[in-house]
Amino acid sequence: MAENVTPRVRVPSSAAAGEVITIKTLISHIMESGQRKNSDGNLIPRSIINRFTCDFNGQNVIDVTLEPAISTNPYFEFQAQVPEAGTYTFTWYDDDGSVYTDTKDIAIG
């Protein structure tokens, strides 16, 4: 597991049923591109988060494939429907096999 990987997620705590909300996510990750060389002149191997997903009560909101051109500390902003009260689940997949998750509950009202 890559060091010090911590996600941050912003979801409103409540919304009206049927409303569309904006979600923002940020995760600390170096996103080593595989293009850089170390001080010895050797290529530093690629090490990135290659996939990010957001689901709500088991249904998919967005599923993003990431390439090395995504900046350090990957940031995403997108929009989601709020059909009912429930939980958004956020998942980041690392090249090294690690999986990072975070969840946010949303209430109707």
């Binding site: 911590t6 912003r10 923002k24 940020l26 350090t72």
Partner: peptide, 12 residues
């Protein structure tokens, strides 16, 4: 504060 990646370090 959400758009500011420096906040990751504030958390740390």
């Amino acid at each position: 504060d959400f758009d500011n990646p420096g906040m990751l370090f504030v958390d740390a």
